[in-house]
Design a protein around this nucleic acid. Structure first.
Lengths: 234, 234
DNA sequence: CGCCGATTTGAAATTGGTCAAACGGCGTGG
DNA sequence: CCACGCCGTTTGACCAATTTCAAATCGGCG
């Protein structure tokens, strides 16, 4: 695959960058391609590079000492990930693991390089901060949801979040998502069994159609209702 | 209370600021003092000001449509809060509510003012980003904990987090914390009943002493063990 | 001393997790 | 081209953790 510097302007952090800066970045980048299931980096590795996903799809997850894991976010094309290392001088290890959900390639740029660039280009710090505040807000909301809402609603929200990020409409105008029950469970903070049961129930109600690594929202409005309907109980 | 500009250097975001900048900030700030239980701002209010806590103690919390709330963090002296509005141009409402845990006062600075200052002072964006990345990491970790760990351990972690932030050693060298069971519950993502039961249990084991709005860690090491001990279950 | 809010505790209800077993679709190698 | 095996999925039964609700108790402050 051949990248043109201005392709990088699709990355939100680089939207205001000059062409020269984009060329600099591209020249310093290394393209890494990996297969489904392989990893860009592991939680705890030294955060030497930040990445920009060029093709494919990946997920960022964090695991506990006992090995259980949660999905922090899914990464789509032209999204940056692993960038914390460019900001923090101490604590230079990735706080999460990045795994490819399908064959993917990403541009790897040395953290220190972006770090240096930011010193002299205020727009860069600023746009990166823009991104960070977005993550903070999202994590805060998800944290509250996890603490206060019951599983069914959290699964509904996960599906809607995915729809917004990467929903693909099929021929019937329905929204298709390609995830395993396990993935959905990790996104919703539950188990694959509960996800399976919930989807089965929704299928009986005609809200979704399910298949292997596939969920089709045939009645998105119904899912929205489950996600939003306010409910005294917990 | 009289503030000197250089007092502001205790705020991590301003640690590298010039004296002139600090004076500017102080001149543009308004000191707001409120009583225990009152609010600096509510979730959903326009994020017109950012705050720096000058005295007292406060908490940042987020509530759901049904009114249940979680505690996002507690705010100590010289910490900045409500700063997201200075970064994002759209979405200009506070994503959380800030309530005083005791009589407190805070310096309120217009968001747009900091926003403008950052345009020409890279160190400011950079130091603010430093702070943001810390929050992201903390929220990610807490999110994972909430999703994968059981209540007892989460309560232990909350106590330890509080200890690190604001633990005060008393005459016996024990660590004192001043929070209601409800506060602890909101920090741990559980109910005040479960917190009460857990603390009672720990008291029987000699790990803590409890009282009204008070927890004393008489055996911090024991709490650490509960928080860390890795556990196959759940 | 009395009241109010915080706390404790019991008992019951419920959610969701765990485990085991069976199912099913899809790709692959014979 | 088809059978086999793998991996993801489904489902039932059981159970543990935690919440919910109610009621009693405690501790200060005014």
């Amino acid at each position: 695959m051949n990248l043109h510097p201005t392709d990088l302007r699709r990355v939100s952090v680089f939207q205001n960058a000059t062409d020269d800066d984009l060329s600099l970045l591209l020249n310093r980048g290394i393209l890494r391609s990996i297969e489904e299931g392989e990893f860009f980096f592991f939680q705890g590795d030294p955060a030497k590079y930040l990445y920009i996903l060029v093709s494919g799809r990946a997920k960022l997850m964090q695991s506990s000492a006992a090995g259980q894991q949660v999905n922090l976010r899914t990464i789509n094309e032209w999204q940056m990930f692993g960038a914390l290392g460019a900001v923090r001088e101490k604590e230079v290890t990735y706080p999460a693991t990045a795994q490819a959900l399908e064959s993917s390639s990403a541009l790897a740029i040395e953290s220190v390089f972006l770090h240096e660039m930011m010193q002299t280009r205020p727009y860069l710090s600023f746009d990166l901060m823009q991104l960070m505040t977005g993550y903070i807000q999202e994590m805060q909301s998800r944290y509250r949801e996890l603490a206060t809402e019951k599983v069914e609603r959290r699964i509904a929200r996960s599906l809607l979040r995915l729809t917004a990020q990467m929903g693909v409409k099929n021929a019937q105008g329905h929204i298709e998502l390609a995830f395993t029950r396990q993935d959905l469970a990790e996104m919703s903070g539950t188990t694959l069994y509960t996800v399976s049961r919930t989807l089965s129930e929704w299928e009986r109600l005609g809200l979704v159609q399910t298949g292997r690594e596939r969920v089709v929202l045939s009645n998105p409005h119904g899912i929205v209702q489950i996600a939003e309907e306010l409910d005294e109980s917990r």
